[in-house]
Amino acid sequence: MADLVIVSAAWPPASCCPDPLAVWEKSSLRCGCPIVLCNQTGHYKRMDMTRGDSAVLSEGKCLMSYRGDPAVLLFDYDEVKRKVCSQTFEVLPC
């Protein structure tokens, strides 16, 4: 069983799935461990990622999320307890 799942995603809100976070919440509930969702930012020729969220989810709930300019997002995780300790990201602008 995994202790932590890290997802490198390129999934903006779209008409087929207006709220991708709902899918990740369901996934975190099913897998039984926290999920770290690292989404892209910016606007590309074929994809607008300006509304894409990066998030940490656990037990079916979004614990924290970020949408904005490119940044490094830091949070505390207890490896022994397999629990997210932070309630918000520390945001380091790039």
Rank of each mutant, 00 (worst) to 15 (best):
2 A>N: 02
2 A>Y: 03
2 A>C: 08
4 L>C: 10
5 V>Q: 03
7 V>I: 09
8 S>W: 06
9 A>W: 01
10 A>H: 12
10 A>E: 13
10 A>W: 04
11 W>S: 10
11 W>R: 00
13 P>R: 13
16 C>T: 04
18 P>R: 14
18 P>H: 11
20 P>K: 07
20 P>M: 02
23 V>E: 00
24 W>F: 11
24 W>S: 00
25 E>N: 13
26 K>V: 02
26 K>C: 07
28 S>E: 02
29 L>G: 03
29 L>C: 01
31 C>T: 11
33 C>Q: 03
34 P>Y: 02
35 I>F: 00
36 V>T: 03
38 C>K: 08
41 T>C: 15
41 T>Y: 00
43 H>G: 08
43 H>I: 15
43 H>A: 14
46 R>K: 08
47 M>I: 14
49 M>G: 09
49 M>K: 07
50 T>Y: 01
51 R>K: 15
51 R>H: 12
54 S>V: 04
56 V>T: 04
56 V>Y: 09
57 L>Q: 09
57 L>T: 04
58 S>N: 10
58 S>Y: 02
59 E>H: 07
59 E>M: 04
60 G>W: 01
61 K>H: 12
61 K>Q: 15
62 C>N: 11
62 C>K: 15
63 L>V: 01
63 L>S: 04
64 M>R: 12
64 M>N: 12
67 R>A: 06
67 R>M: 06
67 R>I: 07
69 D>G: 06
69 D>T: 10
70 P>G: 09
70 P>K: 11
72 V>A: 13
72 V>Y: 02
73 L>K: 08
75 F>E: 00
75 F>N: 04
76 D>R: 07
77 Y>E: 00
78 D>L: 08
80 V>K: 01
80 V>H: 00
81 K>E: 03
81 K>Y: 02
83 K>A: 08
84 V>G: 06
87 Q>N: 13
87 Q>V: 11
90 E>H: 07
90 E>S: 14
90 E>Y: 08
90 E>K: 14
91 V>L: 09
92 L>I: 12
92 L>D: 01
92 L>P: 00
